[in-house]
Amino acid sequence: MEVAPAETERAAVAERLLTSSLRTSYDPTVEIDWDAPHAPGGYWLPPHRSSLYGTSLWEQLSQEQRVELTKHEVASAASAAYTIANRLVHPDVYAAVGIPPAVGRATARANPHWRATLRWSAARVHANLADVGLVAGPGRLLWARAGLI
């Protein structure tokens, strides 16, 4: 019996999705030691991934405030991921360390380190979508115009 072209195409897309997912998947239940205590005074993400890293606001923060900011940024990102939102920082992460949210957001938007972090994050999503042929033509142009690729 001959397989219909639509079935063959669906099988090919499913295979590409599975291959891409296996290559880029991250399983926090396996890759994170959840029983290990957090190191006191340790950053919650690499400092250069913080939205304010490399700015004058970053320089004005104490070491304790920088660590606290990264903690709130990680919590913000986890919350956004949980609600299937994009990976934008919630304004209250800045208020948590005494920075007016509008000032923090404006500084982060102008910060080349933060823009690089957003591009770094988007690159993984884009790679998955591109691998399965879902980002091409006008769609790719939108990603580029947004500065994500």
Rank of each mutant, 00 (worst) to 15 (best):
A4W: 11
A4Y: 06
R10H: 13
A11H: 13
A12Q: 14
A12R: 15
V13H: 11
V13T: 10
T19L: 13
R23D: 09
R23K: 15
T24M: 13
S25A: 12
Y26H: 12
Y26C: 11
D27N: 15
D27Q: 14
P28Y: 12
I32A: 03
I32M: 05
I32E: 03
D33A: 14
D35W: 11
D35F: 10
D35N: 14
A36S: 12
P37K: 04
P37Q: 04
A39R: 12
A39F: 05
A39M: 12
A39I: 11
G41C: 03
G41Y: 06
G42C: 07
Y43G: 07
Y43C: 05
W44P: 01
L45E: 02
L45Q: 10
P47E: 10
S50A: 15
S51Y: 04
Y53M: 00
T55Y: 02
S56N: 09
E59H: 12
L61W: 01
L61C: 10
S62K: 08
Q63F: 14
E64S: 14
Q65L: 00
R66E: 10
E68F: 12
H72I: 02
S76Q: 01
S76R: 01
A77G: 08
A77K: 04
S79L: 15
S79N: 11
S79K: 08
S79R: 11
A80T: 12
A81M: 15
Y82M: 11
A85P: 00
N86L: 10
V89W: 03
H90Y: 07
P91S: 09
Y94K: 03
A96I: 05
A96F: 09
G98W: 07
I99V: 09
I99C: 00
P101S: 13
P101Q: 05
A102N: 07
A102P: 01
V103H: 04
G104T: 00
G104D: 01
R105W: 01
A108V: 00
R109Q: 13
R109Y: 10
A110L: 10
N111L: 01
W114V: 01
W114H: 01
R115W: 04
T117A: 14
T117D: 05
L118M: 10
R119Y: 02
W120H: 12
V125P: 00
V125Y: 09
V125M: 09
N128P: 02
L129D: 07
L129K: 03
L129N: 06
L129R: 10
A130Y: 08
A130F: 03
D131C: 06
D131G: 15
V132T: 10
V132G: 03
V132H: 06
L134D: 09
L134V: 03
A136Y: 06
G137P: 01
G137Y: 11
P138F: 06
P138S: 07
G139W: 07
G139V: 11
L141I: 08
L141Q: 13
A144L: 08
A144T: 09
A144P: 02
R145I: 08
R145N: 06
G147I: 04
G147K: 04
L148Q: 05
I149K: 03
